[in-house]
């Protein structure tokens, strides 16, 4: 690099960066609505045929929203049809469903211990691209009484901006007249780690940096959620949209939000492009929140 280059890199760089930031902030990612089509549902149980059929009925009742404008093909799988993860994967491959519906700890008694999802769901969520709906274990939920529908559906993420699929799926599963709650919780511990590093850099003002980052993250999320609301109204979906933006401890915040909104279904991503395991946010949430059905994308 010549000295000319050195000089040119020094002229007005700060101001250029400042204005580029202003213009980048002005570029808004707008939500793109696209109707989610679910043509077939594979209901997987580890019960016998009768138990599986009863479970299937409850799922069908819970997912009454899927009847909206579609003729769904239901396939109920009972416990005798598979005895291992590979066998279940073969079944899924053969059926190629639009949605898999099951519960934690298939062919296992470990459902009583809230530490894992069980090997079947662990593998299914990562191997198949099909969304999986995880409902509370039949042993956990009484077989009698009214099955709740999906009047309140909560889309959960730590980065909602540009996540069209998450919102589209959540909108699809929100019952007519129901509420779609879009929630974005930024992880405070991750932010704290960066701010701690900033606190050791004399040239950066720590307090104003924290405020600016939190403000920017929350504003981006709100702007995107606003566009979600506008597009859903434009698409004439019979649902209402609410937005929740916060930052704090993921599990604590989400547990609070689920309880506060009495959510009937939680929708979240489970695929993590960088690792062969469930998304960092989804796994602990899926473990922790056991009484509310989850839709894992």
């Amino acid at each position: 690099m010549t000295s000319y280059d050195h000089r040119s890199h020094g002229i007005g760089v700060g101001k250029v960066d400042q204005f580029e930031s202003v213009f980048r902030a002005a570029v808004k990612t707008r939500f793109e609505y696209s109707a989610v089509q679910v043509e077939s549902v594979l209901v997987v149980s580890d019960r016998d045929e009768r138990g599986a059929a009863e479970f299937g009925d409850r799922v069908r009742t819970r997912l009454a929203v899927l009847k909206r404008g579609e003729n769904i093909r239901w396939r109920i799988v009972h416990g005798g049809e598979y005895d291992s993860v590979p066998a279940l994967l073969e079944l899924v491959e053969a059926e190629r469903p639009g949605l898999i519906c099951t519960y934690r700890h298939l062919h296992s008694d470990s459902w009583q211990w809230p530490y894992t999802l069980g090997e079947y769901i662990d593998v299914l969520t990562q191997v198949t691209s099909t969304p999986i709906m995880v409902v509370p274990h039949p042993e956990r939920q009484p077989e009698v009484g009214a099955v709740r529908g999906t009047k309140v559906v909560m889309a959960m993420t730590d980065h909602v901006m540009g996540d069209h699929a998450l919102v589209n799926w959540a909108a699809r599963f929100t019952a007519e007249g129901g509420r779609l709650v879009l929630s974005n919780v930024e992880d405070a511990s991750a932010l704290d780690r960066f701010i701690e590093a900033v606190g050791r850099i004399p040239s950066i003002d720590t307090d104003s940096t924290r405020v600016a980052i939190v403000d920017r993250l929350e504003r981006d999320a709100r702007d995107f959620m606003q566009s979600c609301s506008e597009e859903i109204v434009r698409a004439a979906l019979p649902i209402s949209v609410e937005s929740m933006v916060a930052h704090g401890h993921h599990l604590t915040e989400y547990s609070r939000l689920v309880e506060e909104h009495e959510a009937d279904l939680l929708v979240m991503h489970t695929k993590d492009e960088d690792q062969l395991a469930m998304h960092g946010l989804a796994y602990p949430l899926a473990i922790e929140v056991r009484s509310v059905p989850l839709l894992l994308l």
Binding site: T2, D5, I11
Partner: peptide, 24 residues
């Protein structure tokens, strides 16, 4: 020339900032 005025130098700064090569 790029050093003939401060504003052309700013233009070159932005060009270089975005990874484009432009010699004197």
């Amino acid at each position: 020339t790029p050093i003939g005025s401060a504003s052309t130098l700013v233009a070159v700064t932005i060009i270089h900032k975005h990874g484009l090569r432009l010699s004197f």
